[in-house]
Amino acid sequence: MKKITYGLFFGDSITYGEYDGVFGGWVDILKRYALQQFHRGDGDELILFNLGIGGETTEGLMKRMPHELTARNSPDGNLVFIAYGANDLAAKNGRQMVDPEKFKKNIENAVRQAKQFSDDIYLISILPISQKIDGVIVNSGKLRSNEEVIRYNHILKDIADKDSLTYIDFYSAFFKDKEILLSADGVHPNEKGYGIMAETAMPIIEKYI
C-alpha cells in the first residue's frame, strides 16, 4: 500500500510565492511536481501544503504552528520546512521586528514543536537582498542589510547543526547572481529566482515520492 506523506512549508511571503505571477513560487512548483509524479503511478504520494503568510515573523509562527501541525498530520509521516528571518531581521524606527536572541528562541521552539510530528525537519536560509536596498530605508519604512541576513543565517545553521537537521542553503544559491534573481523590490525572488529555489529543493522532495 502506498504511503501518503504531508509536507508543510511554514514561512512568509517568499514561501507563499509573492510576485511570481507565472509559477506561483517555489513551493507551488514543487507541489505540482509531486502531483505529476503521483499521477504517473510512481512511488508514494506526497501532498505539499503552502503555509506561507506575507509579512509574518517567527512571532506569528509561534501562535499558529501547533494548530497547523495538528490539522495537517499524516499517519504515514510529515515533512516540516521552516523558512523565516527576512521579516524578523527588518528594522523599523531603529528596532528589529524580532531581535536575534528572540529569533533563535522562536526557531528552537518551532523545531521542538515540529519534532512532535516529524523526524524530517528542514531549516531554510534567508535570501540575500539586492545591493540597492542594502542598509536603505525603503517605502515601507523597513531597513534590511546583508550583514543581518548573514547573522540570522548563522543562527539557523547553528540550530540545524545542533539538532542534526538539514539546512537548505538558498543564500549561497542566490548570492552570485542575486541582482538578476531578485524582483524590483530587492527582497523577493522573481520567476527565475523562484525556479532556482525549486531546483535546489527538488532532490529533497524526490526522496519521498
Rank of each mutant, 00 (worst) to 15 (best):
Q113S: 09
H39M: 12
A90L: 06
S118Q: 04
L181P: 05
Q116I: 06
D88P: 09
D76N: 15
Q113M: 14
Y152R: 10
F49G: 03
G41V: 05
F175Y: 13
F9W: 13
G135P: 03
I150E: 14
M197K: 00
K92P: 00
G60D: 00
I133M: 01
T15C: 06
Y16N: 10
L35T: 11
I150S: 09
G52P: 02
H39R: 14
R144A: 03
N87T: 00
R112Q: 13
D161R: 12
S13V: 04
L127H: 03
Q96V: 01
L48C: 01
L156F: 05
M65P: 02
D185K: 04
G195K: 07
D99M: 02
I196E: 08
W26R: 06
K192N: 09
A34K: 11
A173G: 07
F49K: 09
A34T: 12
K3F: 05
M197D: 07
S13N: 07
S13K: 07
P189I: 00
L127W: 06
N146H: 14
S130G: 13
K142F: 12
L89G: 02
I107Y: 05
G141M: 07
D28G: 01
S183N: 08
G24F: 10
D76V: 06
D99C: 02
D120R: 15
D163S: 11
R40I: 09
A90H: 01
Y19P: 01
R40H: 12
Y194L: 00
G54I: 04
F175I: 08
D169F: 06
F103L: 02
V98C: 05
S140N: 12
D76I: 00
I4A: 11
I29N: 05
F23A: 15
F23W: 12
F174K: 12
G25I: 09
L143E: 00
E199M: 14
N106C: 05
S164W: 09
K115I: 05
E18K: 14
F10G: 01
F117A: 08
T58N: 04
N50F: 03
T166E: 09
Y171E: 05
E108H: 07
V111R: 12
E191W: 12
F117P: 08
G141Y: 06
G54N: 08
I129H: 00
L48S: 00
G85K: 07
G11I: 08
K102Y: 00
A71H: 14
A201V: 08
E59W: 11
T5K: 15
L48P: 01
Y6A: 11
L48K: 05
N87D: 09
N190M: 08
L79H: 02
M202L: 12
A184W: 08
Y171K: 04
G60R: 03
L79D: 03
Y194F: 06
R40P: 03
H154W: 07
I205T: 10
A71S: 15
